[in-house]
């Protein structure tokens, strides 16, 4: 579903934020992408989603190269960024209709899904209000609802648990699970190890732009009695 081949990104200041990253994600998986602050998680996700172009390497989503066939590739995924900065002078419902139009969601489906997700996240009643009156968490839940609206093949989230209350975080986890059970794929970054360990089929660990592990939590832990947290801390330790 998602293939990264030697993906690298060097920013203007000659800093290699992501270095030769190779990753293969299968259909129906939930992958947790973890790493310390500044490891390159957001950079990787921005490359996958076409927000920035990789300096080197290729990225394919459902067999479509994001650089060569951007529109075809972008039809396959939706994205929730780490910070809900969206154009907020419109109403919540305007935003959802906008996203639905862009992804060509039928009227019947958008009605069904908007009701389902926004009611679950308890923002349904706020939809007729302008987004700039929403709290941070509400904005994030609106973005998540919008991203789920097209029922994407690949659902990409950057630090989705940050800023959500426990109730909403639980709903999000359920939604992510459900999405996989229906055959969708979920790729999300996090630094909350517990969430990753409980939820994900596989865990990818990135450190200083390099992928240092990608396996099931059990396999990563296999050779030691340590917890995932201890292993994570050990692996990403600064010499």
């Amino acid at each position: 579903m998602l293939t990264l081949k030697n993906a690298s990104k060097t920013y203007g200041n000659n800093k290699k934020a992501v270095d030769q990253l190779n990753l293969e994600i299968e259909k129906g998986e939930i992958i947790g992408f973890i790493g310390p602050n500044g490891a390159g998680k957001t950079t990787t996700i921005r490359m996958i989603t076409g927000i920035i172009a990789p300096t080197e390497g290729t990225i394919e989503i459902n067999g479509k190269d994001i650089a060569k066939q951007p529109v075809e590739a972008k039809k396959n995924f939706t994205f929730v960024p780490d910070h809900p900065t969206i154009f907020d002078a419109i109403k919540g419902i305007d935003y959802l209709n906008f996203i639905a139009d862009m992804h060509e969601v039928t009227i019947q489906q958008r009605k069904e899904r908007i009701e389902k997700y926004t009611k679950a996240f308890q923002i349904y009643d706020a939809l007729p209000q302008t987004i700039n009156s929403y709290s941070h968490g509400m904005k994030q839940k609106l973005l998540i609802s919008g991203a789920l609206l097209p029922n994407p093949n690949l659902f990409i989230l950057d630090e989705p648990m940050v800023g959500l209350d426990p109730h909403s975080a639980k709903i999000l986890k359920d939604v992510m699970r459900e999405h996989c059970e229906k055959g969708g794929t979920v790729f999300f970054s996090s630094h909350v190890l517990e969430v990753v360990e409980n939820l994900c089929d596989r865990v990818a660990i990135i450190h200083r732009g390099k992928l240092i592990a990608c396996d099931t939590a059990e396999n990563i832990k296999k050779n030691s009695s340590a917890t995932l947290e201890e292993i994570f801390l050990e692996m990403t330790k600064d010499e």
């Binding site: 109403k91 209709n97 139009d101 009227i107 958008r110 007729p128 209000q129």
Partner: peptide
């Protein structure tokens, strides 16, 4: 601002 929830393509 108040208003209705609509579904329109």
């Amino acid at each position: 601002q108040g208003g209705k929830i609509y579904y329109k393509s």
